Amino acid sequence: MEYTERQQKIIQMLKAKSPLTGEEIANQLNLSVPTIRADLRLLTAVEVLSARPKVGYVYQGDNQAGVDYATLYEQPVSAIMQPAATIKDDATLQVAISKLFLQDVGTLFVLDQEGQLAGLISRKDLLRASFNNSNPESVLASVIMTRMPNIVTVTPDMTVKQAGQLLLKHKVDSVPVVAQSAPQEVIGRITKNRIFQHFIEQA
């Protein structure tokens, strides 16, 4: 398996001295813990490192003969995407709140009356709107949503690595997967958790 330069530095660091906490690793790299969290998750998932509660990370060997780099990173988004949770732009705030929690998702994708992607609503959006409005039945999804074109999207032919890079770059947890031939037709979603689950499944 091919590792990034930063992942290789983490491996060498823990080969030389184990255990180290996430903070100690981040300090030696002059980075923040959130910045290296994805690297630590991956190295733990493929069992190069083990994470010991209240102790830190321990190097346990690069036994990755069965892990294929292409399988982890180069699979198309279409292979791991999940169904999208959608709502119409004329739905009320109350309906949006109910749907988000009933479907246990972090983001709802808002569709216009033609079924095209018009925006999205996150848990933060709903929480903010709930505080600002005493009557959730009077507020429409179209009023509180983040609108196109300020939404990051991916297509099903993009790789898992490309999708993950977009999630990290834009600091979002979920993006809609749209059809290649119709950039406002939502056909699924991809999340940070789904990508992490994919790594675990392939380890």
Rank of each mutant, 00 (worst) to 15 (best):
1 M>E: 10
3 Y>F: 14
4 T>I: 05
5 E>K: 15
6 R>N: 15
7 Q>I: 03
9 K>W: 02
12 Q>V: 08
13 M>W: 06
14 L>G: 08
16 A>H: 01
17 K>H: 15
19 P>E: 04
20 L>V: 04
23 E>M: 05
25 I>Y: 02
29 L>Q: 02
33 V>S: 02
34 P>V: 02
38 A>L: 07
40 L>N: 07
41 R>E: 06
42 L>T: 06
45 A>G: 10
47 E>P: 00
48 V>F: 06
48 V>P: 00
49 L>A: 06
49 L>E: 11
54 K>E: 03
54 K>N: 02
60 Q>K: 14
61 G>C: 08
68 D>R: 15
69 Y>S: 14
70 A>V: 01
70 A>F: 06
75 Q>A: 10
80 I>E: 12
81 M>L: 05
82 Q>F: 01
83 P>R: 10
83 P>I: 02
84 A>C: 06
85 A>N: 06
87 I>Q: 14
88 K>T: 15
88 K>A: 14
92 T>D: 02
92 T>K: 14
92 T>Y: 03
93 L>G: 05
93 L>H: 04
97 I>R: 13
99 K>M: 09
99 K>E: 14
100 L>Y: 00
101 F>K: 12
104 D>S: 12
107 T>W: 06
108 L>R: 11
115 G>T: 07
121 I>Q: 12
121 I>F: 09
126 L>S: 09
135 N>V: 15
139 V>C: 01
141 A>H: 12
143 V>S: 15
147 R>E: 13
149 P>M: 12
149 P>N: 07
155 T>C: 13
159 T>E: 09
162 Q>K: 11
163 A>I: 02
168 L>W: 10
171 K>S: 14
172 V>H: 14
175 V>M: 09
176 P>E: 01
181 S>I: 00
182 A>Y: 00
183 P>C: 04
184 Q>T: 14
186 V>C: 10
189 R>V: 09
196 F>Y: 10
197 Q>W: 04
197 Q>H: 11
202 Q>P: 01
